[in-house]
């Protein structure tokens, strides 16, 4: 049981770190630019497809990953330039609709380009297999690599936001947009940068997951909803909140799915327990979100405005 707990804890953390990579961009775009971006999940998908395509061309996943990330960034910049910058003075509703339309277009676009069958990529040789982590317990190397890369990016983001001028602008932008532009910062360039970086982080997350889950159309939709849950729980605009909430959602979802039924079995009949467990498991994070919002309507780490 302890072994399983450790294993599932690692799984939950890895899932949480992945959610954080996607959520970091979304919460900044939301917090700094005040744009609701439903196409953010599609950018995760685009990252996955880019990595798959480049791996096919280069014949090596690590090279494919390295190529995919700048292209994901470029893609985000182009999207901002073409569409998103027209949304800054629009209502949230208009933003929801336009990015919903973009999401439909991107989902269908990859289907036209790559077909509807999933595309998979082989694990890099050096990162395949598993290593012992605790006694007889083994864990896949690649998942540890995802965990490490995600934590690295989180650390880098924290450093950038709290230790650099750009970060200061971002923090200021999230709490008082007018002030930042009044101070003479080119707000358009800042927004372009934020959106591009968000697209790149989401694309990076998608690209890293390709060897595990393979690229397929609509793969971003579930991630999008989960990420929204994360940033709302964490408090919109707060990177720290997104990080804590992402790990919380990852752990609650993973541990709930595997230990929920076991817990229920000690409370009720086995048949009843598995039925209830199946009903409750997918609802768990939504219940978590509703409960947190009912107590703290602005999330765990509300940004002061």
């Amino acid at each position: 049981m302890t072994n399983l707990l450790i294993l599932q804890g690692l799984n939950g953390l890895q899932f949480g770190v992945l959610l954080f990579l996607v959520a970091a961009g979304l919460t900044l775009i939301f917090g700094v630019m005040d744009v609701i971006n439903l196409a953010h999940g599609a950018q995760y998908m685009v990252g996955a497809y880019l990595a798959a395509a480049f791996t096919g061309l280069a014949g090596n996943f690590l090279l494919g990953l390295v190529l995919a990330v700048p292209v994901a960034l470029a893609f985000g910049l182009v999207l901002e330039w073409l569409v998103i910058r027209r949304l800054y003075d629009r209502s949230h509703l208009d933003q929801v609709l336009v990015t919903f339309g973009l999401m439909l277009m991107l989902n269908e676009g990859v289907r036209i380009l790559w077909g509807s069958a999933p595309i998979s990529v082989d694990l890099p040789e050096a990162l395949s297999g598993s290593i012992p982590v605790w006694g007889t317990l083994r864990y896949p190397v690649y998942r540890l690599a995802i965990l490490g890369a995600g934590l690295g990016v989180a650390l880098g983001l924290w450093w950038m936001i709290h230790r650099t001028r750009l970060g200061m602008l971002l923090r200021a932008g999230a709490s008082n947009r007018a002030m930042v532009s009044a101070l003479g910062t080119d707000i358009n360039r800042l927004f372009l940068l934020v959106f591009g970086a968000g697209a790149m982080l989401a694309g990076f997350a998608g690209a890293m997951m390709v060897p595990v889950i393979s690229a397929e159309p609509d793969m971003g939709d579930t991630v999008l909803i989960l990420t929204f849950v994360v940033i709302v729980i964490g408090g919109i605009g707060s990177i720290r909140g997104a990080f804590v909430a992402a790990l919380l959602v990852g752990l609650v979802d993973t541990l709930g799915r595997s230990f929920g039924p076991i817990l229920l079995r000690s409370l009720m009949e086995p048949d009843m327990a598995s039925q209830t467990g199946r009903t409750l498991a997918p609802m768990l994070i939504y219940i978590l979100m509703a409960a947190i919002l009912a107590v703290r309507p602005a999330g765990l780490f509300p940004v002061q405005r």
Partner: peptide
């Protein structure tokens, strides 16, 4: 044991851990 997973799930790390256990 018998496991049922959501239809839209893509990552099965938790289920695979249970199988291993």
């Amino acid at each position: 044991d018998e496991l049922y997973v959501p239809l839209d799930q893509m990552d099965y790390s938790a289920e695979l851990a249970q199988i291993a256990a």
